[in-house]
Design a protein around this nucleic acid. Structure first.
Lengths: 213, 213
DNA sequence: ATACAATAGGTATATATTTATCGATAACAA
DNA sequence: TTGTTATCGATAAATATATACCTATTGTAT
């Protein structure tokens, strides 16, 4: 039994939030920071921040706090954001374009090497400095490129077929912006961005507010 | 004590997934469905599906299952997706445009009444049939419009200020696509779409996969 | 009629996550 | 030096969520 200890997903999801704040502090020349300080910034409890940060293996010093540099490096290392992750994006529509245009991901080591689409009007163009190729060429263009992940921003109907192509390209993971549950071979991980789920939570909370008034 | 029973967020987040599937079944003329069937579709356990569906108050019949129509209506009612939710979207860039262009939200009752931006090139245009106005006009244009929510797809720096304007418009909730934690008056709910959090989970799982091989 | 199988629904257990508590450490002030 | 305080780190308790189990119901086959 290989005892693959797995980390709390909510903690992992909070790390980028801390990272952003820590980088901001770093930019201001701050060298030390306490959990208390981070916690009050985000309306959380300091214990939780401490526990989250402990995932990275960094320890702080009583009465002092943590070294900002150390934390930034450790979080990035923990998330694998210290080295580039090479990606193909499929579906250069509005959503694909939004992802290509968001600088934040570059900070996370994400390098979108190429985009693919089936629309002749898009093929041959560049979107936010990223070339758009014909989807037909994706497997061929993937050869020797060492693509780590595929970003799926295609219409639902095309999702499974494109996922299959991405697997052929050799990706280890798919970042799935479609609402489709993909069938993938073991070893290929999939992370779904469920915007409807987020909207559902908002709707439900709005409704509850209404009823209370 | 008003005993506001609150529902499990993970359950709420799964409901749209079921809803999508149920509507699909409805389209195929299916009138009945069992938890077992839904569960196998999504690789879940039937008990969990049953528990999730029970939030809506609908009960099924042994050996038969649930009535598809009844479930669809009940889920939509539960989420508040049975009646229109009127929204202003601020930030008509790629991401805003992607949201304006995604038909799925219309199915959820979301009506994006108008978009706002500060870019003169965008003001006066329409994006996916939605007019783009000058952000300066937002409070004036909000009068009498009964706007339920604001969708925030602006650069981080503008986020807090725009949120303040949306509150002035009278929204009850903000769907926040920026990584900024907003200061909002009590009574205004905020749901954050954290794409970096999602990417963090993917990165972490990719990294773990690497190490195992 | 009766037995059987599929299914919902409730209850109990297990797991995951958050929150609380307490002791230890190290800076700072008296 | 000694006391005080802010902080970390570990452990324990509480809460939330997921899973397992059992019972009741009802259609179908015998």
């Amino acid at each position: 039994m290989s005892s693959v200890k797995s980390f709390p997903i909510p903690s992992i999801q909070r790390l980028p939030v801390y990272l952003r704040f820590l980088k901001e502090q770093q930019g201001r020349g701050e060298t030390l920071i306490s959990c208390t300080r981070i916690a009050e910034e985000f309306g959380q409890l300091s214990v939780q921040v401490r526990k989250d940060l402990s995932l990275t293996g960094i320890s702080g010093r009583p009465k002092i706090g943590y070294r900002v540099d150390e934390l930034v490096d450790a979080i990035q290392l923990f998330l694998g954001w210290d080295r580039p992750t090479r990606a193909f994006l499929v579906g250069a529509g509005s959503l694909g374009s939004a992802i290509l245009g968001y600088d934040g991901f570059a900070d996370h080591g994400l390098r979108i090497v190429a985009a693919f689409d089936t629309d002749p009007k898009k093929i041959g163009q560049t979107v936010h400095h990223c070339p758009v190729f014909d989807l037909k060429e994706i497997v061929e263009r993937g050869k020797g490129e060492n693509i780590d992940i595929g970003i799926l921003t295609v219409p639902s109907l095309a999702a499974q077929e494109v996922a299959r192509l991405l697997v052929q390209v050799g990706v280890g993971g798919i970042w799935n912006y479609t609402p489709v549950r993909l069938e993938l071979p073991p070893g290929v991980v999939c992370e779904e961005v469920k915007l409807s789920a987020s909207y559902a939570v908002l709707s439900n909370r709005l409704k509850k507010n209404d009823l209370q008034i």
